[in-house]
Amino acid sequence: MGLESALGEGYITTKLDALIGWARKNSLWPMPMGLSCCAIELMSAGDPRHDISRYGMEVMRFSPRQSDVMIVAGTVTYKMAHVVRKIYDQMAEPRWVIAMGACASSGGMFRSYSVVQGIDQFLPVDVFTAGCPPRPENLFNALIELQKKVGTSSVLDYRDRKEPIILS
């Protein structure tokens, strides 16, 4: 429009936030923190029927340094919590966390001495997903919601502590 017509062909004007947010949200690499039953549904999400590649988020990286979003899939015990936190700390910023399933979100059905009652006790979580385990479609929903959140967050302060998204 106004400015672009003055600059000539080949230029667009936009906010840096919008551009970087767009780039970030379309190149999310998940780190599959597969712990228990949800990990099987996470694998199902990558199978030929559900095909996670449709959303541009299929590049599962088991190395935390190459990934952007950690999908905590399964029950986190107190013994495992230290490992999960260590892996999270190794991820490069900006980084996001999806709590997949009831166990990761709240301890779920495991109200016992060894299960952490929700990973938000030691990790900042961006999306909580319901289900025990969530169907692959539900995981995709979480990823899409996360994409929306990533696309609209500020570059300098990407973690401006918006309220986490709770999917039911």
Binding site: T75, T77, M109, F110, R111, Y113, S114
Partner: peptide
Amino acid sequence: LGYLHRGYEKIAENETYHEFITH
């Protein structure tokens, strides 16, 4: 082992026989 120790046996002691099927 033990990174996924969820305490099933303790949970079972606190649930009825029907409830534990889900576990």
